Amino acid sequence: MSWFLAQPLTWLVATLLVYRGGCAVRDRTGHPAAQPVLVAVVVLGAVLVLLPGDVASRLAPFVEGTQGLVFLLGPATVALAVPLHRQLHRLRGYLLGLVVSLVVGVLVSVGSSVALVRLLGGDETLMRTVAPKATTAPVAIALSGTIQGIPALTAAIGISAGILGAVAAPTVLTWLRVRDHRARGLATGAVSHGIGTSRMLLEHPTEGAFSGLSMGLTALATSALLPVLVPLLVRLLV
């Protein structure tokens, strides 16, 4: 059994099977919480913790076995340009509002995150760590290191935000009576990046396309604003 659990291929197959199971649960139930990524995180996390032996000894083969999936994230992100290209005609007359809304979204996201950490008693390092949470994981990790945060914790917080957005965003936007497919996609992509975008692609082609666009532009705007914004906020709040 120990030999089996130490094989990277074991964890690669387990990850694929659990994700596929999450897709089946989503398709069968239609429940917002039945997101494949969330199902995979919960099931695989429980397996890693509950199996006998040292958790750390299983993490190494798990990481090794899933490196191929991590590599595929790059091509998958680039492929989001395909649905956007098909929806380019919907950008007409919308570009200025798109840019303004995304910049304001970055300011609100970073400012509210840092202020909430301070309000709850967190220190300066934690404030810097949560600031890039709305960007996709590779960008968030790089930004966190640049502003003296904790990159690993930033990644965990960002992934959690993405999962929460994928679960809740469509319902919340419907409650708020946001009907425009472009606006729904932009809002989701700005706060829950790739995971939320995968959900919006299932909701509507336009929502998925604009969510992918929002994800990329939010990462760009955050990269430009964060090095200036975070030190300013820290000085004001600490």
Rank of each mutant, 00 (worst) to 15 (best):
A161K: 08
Q148R: 14
T146K: 09
V103E: 05
A115W: 13
G97W: 02
L164E: 06
V178Y: 05
A169R: 03
T188I: 13
P151Y: 06
V130H: 06
A155I: 10
H89C: 07
S112K: 04
G185R: 02
L96E: 10
L96Y: 09
H181T: 14
L120V: 13
A166H: 04
I159C: 02
A137N: 09
A115Q: 04
T171Q: 07
H181F: 15
S113M: 10
I163A: 04
V139Q: 00
V104M: 04
G111A: 03
R177P: 09
V114M: 03
T135Q: 08
A166Q: 01
I141W: 01
H89Q: 11
V139S: 00
L126S: 04
L95D: 09
R179S: 14
G162Q: 03
L153E: 09
V104S: 03
D123H: 11
G93R: 04
S101V: 07
T174L: 13
L153F: 15
T171R: 13
H181Q: 14
G121K: 11
I150F: 13
R118H: 15
G121D: 05
V130Q: 06
A152L: 10
R118E: 08
R179Y: 11
L153D: 12
L116D: 08
A134S: 15
G165Y: 07
A140H: 13
H85M: 10
V100R: 00
A166K: 07
A137F: 15
V178N: 00
P138A: 04
A137H: 06
G122Y: 15
A115H: 03
W175M: 06
Q148W: 12
A183M: 14
I163Q: 06
G165F: 13
A155M: 12
R177S: 12
P132S: 01
V172G: 03
A140D: 09
L126V: 11
I141N: 00
I163K: 07
Y94N: 04
V172E: 01
T146A: 12
A156K: 06
A134E: 13
G149T: 15
A169W: 05
S112R: 09
A131D: 01
E124I: 15
L88I: 15
S112P: 03
L119H: 09
L126E: 05
G189I: 06
G105L: 02
T154Q: 10
V100H: 01
A152E: 14
G165Q: 04
A168G: 09
V103T: 12
A137P: 14
P138K: 10
V99K: 03
A155W: 12
T171F: 12
R118D: 11
S109C: 07
R92M: 05
V100K: 01
